[in-house]
Simulated assay, not measured.
Amino acid sequence: MEAAIEDLEREQRLTRKHVQRVEGDVKPVNDRAYENKVEMVTFRHQREETEKESKRLAGEIVSLRGRIARLDELCEQLVLLRELKISPEAYRKSLRAHRRKEASKADGSHDLRKACLHAAPAVGKKWRQLYFYLPFEPARDVDKRQRDVILLDTIASRKDLTDDEVARKSLEKWQTFHRRAGVFDLTQALRAIRKAGLARQIENTFHAHVPET
């Protein structure tokens, strides 16, 4: 009986030592797991901050591109003034007269639809780039435009649409969201994607008016 008790006590001591050794091994693992968790949370936070900053910068890029397009437009006007050899005041008077003439017509939505149909084949695969330059009223932020593009890509994939057809659909969507859109808005965006020749062609065909400077 005493021998059995001694064996039991000896086994108990060995078990305690084994438990202590295992606990000693587990602690570093737990510490490392905690450190990994902290690093993961930190990384996730940094990624979220980076994504926010990327979206902000993307919005600024869209805004800057719009300004660049406007500056290009002004440069073209200056070149035209030089070629026509007329004063800026005379040119502005001509523009105001043209605007009054345009205002006496219909709202121009029919011309815009025709201009978009005319532009779509020439825009082709650059329709995504154009969509981010088009103005919206009310404003449509970068995230919403990205969702629009993804939806159009999905539709194009399902229906096996050509680039020309998707370009036309993207311009139709733009007109849906921007009820006050005009031909001039389209030509500005076309210039922003280096389609100045197409923009001039549309202006000459559909008489897009230029806002006063």
Rank of each mutant, 00 (worst) to 15 (best):
R47D: 05
M40D: 07
A58K: 00
E53K: 02
K27Y: 06
G24L: 01
A58H: 00
T15R: 14
V22G: 07
A33Y: 03
R47Q: 06
V26E: 01
I61P: 01
E39N: 02
V38H: 00
K37P: 10
K52A: 08
V29F: 07
E48I: 05
M40G: 05
T50C: 09
K55A: 04
Q12L: 07
E48C: 04
R32S: 07
A58M: 04
R44S: 12
E53W: 01
F43S: 15
H45T: 11
F43L: 15
R16A: 13
I61E: 03
T15V: 15
E6Q: 11
E11A: 11
K17I: 06
E51H: 09
D25S: 14
D7A: 12
Q46N: 09
E60H: 02
Q20F: 03
R21Q: 13
V29R: 04
R32A: 00
N36I: 06
Y34A: 14
L8M: 13
L57A: 03
V29T: 11
K37A: 14
Q20A: 09
E11K: 05
V22L: 13
Q12P: 00
T50Q: 14
F43P: 00
V41T: 04
N30T: 13
E35S: 08
P28E: 00
L14S: 08
Q20L: 02
E49W: 01
K17R: 14
R21L: 10
K27H: 06
G59Q: 01
D7P: 00
F43Y: 14
E48A: 12
V29C: 05
R16I: 13
E6R: 11
E39C: 08
E48Y: 11
N30Q: 13
T42D: 06
K27W: 05
R56S: 13
T42A: 06
Q46A: 02
E48Q: 14
K17G: 02
V29E: 02
K55R: 11
T42I: 14
V41N: 10
T50N: 10
N36S: 07
E60R: 04
E49M: 07
E23D: 12
D7H: 07
E9W: 02
L8W: 08
V19F: 08
R21K: 15
N36T: 02
Y34R: 08
S54E: 15
V22N: 08
V26N: 00
L14R: 07
E6L: 07
E35L: 10
E11V: 15
H18A: 13
P28T: 04
R10M: 10
N30W: 05
V26Q: 06
T15D: 12
Y34V: 12
T50D: 10
S54C: 12
L8V: 04
L57I: 06
E35P: 06
S54L: 12
D31K: 14
V38Y: 07
V41R: 06
E53Y: 07
E39P: 00
K52S: 15
I61M: 04
E23I: 05
